[in-house]
Amino acid sequence: MKKMETVAVLGAGAWGTALAVAIARAGKKPVLWARNAAVVDDIQKNRRNEKYLPGQELPPMPASCDLSIAKDTDAILIAVPAQQIRAVCGVVRPHVAKSIPILIAAKGIETGTDLLVTDIAGEFFPDHPLAVLSGPNFADEVAKGLPTATTIACADEAIGKSLLDVFGSQTLRPYWTADVIGTCIGGSLKNVIAIAAGVVAGKDLGDNARAALVTRGLAEIGRLAAHMGANPQTLMGLSGMGDLMLTCYGEKSRNFRYGFLMGKGASPTEAKQKISATIEGIETARAVCELAQKKSLELPISMAVNALISGKISVQDAMNGLLNRPLKQE
């Protein structure tokens, strides 16, 4: 198998830029694509991305608004919001070399289709190995080189383990798993549960309430994952429990802060306006509820979050609905 030396990173937001830094730190060569010409100019001239990753010096790396930058690379890393995966796959496909790995670094479920991010990519790259990167990772900490662990899921063990070498360094420790479905589900639903955890914190409901919410949220994630054929053990790892803990207790989480603002009395619209970046849990909540209804699954926290952010119920209604559910075995 050819060693992966050059990786095209599609998406120069905070996460894509941080992953490009991690690839360079691992001794590989990232090439970065962005839609925003000003971002490309900042990266090329100043070795900065002040718009998305302020204060972080970047290693020298090519950056462009031209997707032909993806040609002749050994792997493609797509780091855009989940709802944009389809569009990016469509426009980059003509520039992608035959059979190289496609790695997705996005957390969410597509609304309308209810597809996982790797399933979307598979429609455009049916003959390519597909993988997903997910874990308890804040972009700024990865970029700074603070100790971090993450999961790379790929059904092909040899390719999955080769991808570990693309990222592994003194400060970033990636682990391989074959469970793509479980890794995708854990990374997606934790954003929905984090919105609920933020509401609990914003409403000053106490540590007991947040611990209960997160624990029952993990059970909910496991219920959907098992139904879709995932390995339950995956959710005990970095892409499940690890990511859930970080997002539900880390105040840098956009999903947590969005819920926190609603807990403090902001409307869903007001809370969203105050967060200056994509809140993946909003669209994922809608997609999860679509799945739950189709599959007759009981996902009460996700359903409550979706109703809350849709303006159908108040925070108090959501609390009452969850607390007044019938008592049952854990």
Rank of each mutant, 00 (worst) to 15 (best):
residue 134 S to G: 10
residue 247 T to P: 09
residue 309 I to T: 08
residue 114 D to F: 15
residue 175 Y to H: 11
residue 109 I to M: 04
residue 180 V to S: 03
residue 244 L to M: 04
residue 49 N to D: 07
residue 128 H to I: 04
residue 246 L to A: 12
residue 69 I to N: 01
residue 256 F to R: 13
residue 5 E to P: 01
residue 93 R to C: 08
residue 52 Y to R: 02
residue 157 E to D: 11
residue 258 Y to A: 10
residue 188 S to L: 07
residue 162 S to T: 14
residue 124 F to I: 10
residue 264 K to I: 13
residue 101 P to K: 06
residue 76 I to D: 01
residue 233 Q to S: 13
residue 166 V to T: 03
residue 180 V to E: 02
residue 36 N to Q: 11
residue 118 T to P: 09
residue 134 S to P: 09
residue 43 I to T: 03
residue 179 D to I: 07
residue 274 K to P: 03
residue 110 E to P: 10
residue 295 K to D: 14
residue 232 P to A: 09
residue 214 V to F: 13
residue 21 V to E: 03
residue 149 A to C: 11
residue 38 A to N: 14
residue 321 G to R: 11
residue 6 T to I: 07
residue 258 Y to V: 02
residue 135 G to C: 11
residue 175 Y to P: 12
residue 20 A to F: 01
residue 326 P to G: 09
residue 79 A to Q: 01
residue 97 A to L: 14
residue 305 V to P: 01
residue 323 L to K: 10
residue 305 V to I: 12
residue 10 L to F: 05
residue 262 M to V: 04
residue 229 G to W: 11
residue 92 V to K: 04
residue 246 L to S: 12
residue 12 A to V: 06
residue 292 A to T: 09
residue 230 A to Y: 00
residue 62 P to T: 14
residue 204 D to H: 14
residue 223 R to P: 02
residue 96 V to I: 14
residue 35 R to S: 04
residue 216 R to S: 04
residue 184 C to E: 08
residue 19 L to T: 01
residue 96 V to W: 00
residue 296 S to P: 15
residue 204 D to Y: 15
residue 54 P to V: 03
residue 314 S to A: 06
residue 79 A to M: 01
residue 87 A to R: 01
residue 121 A to T: 02
residue 163 L to V: 01
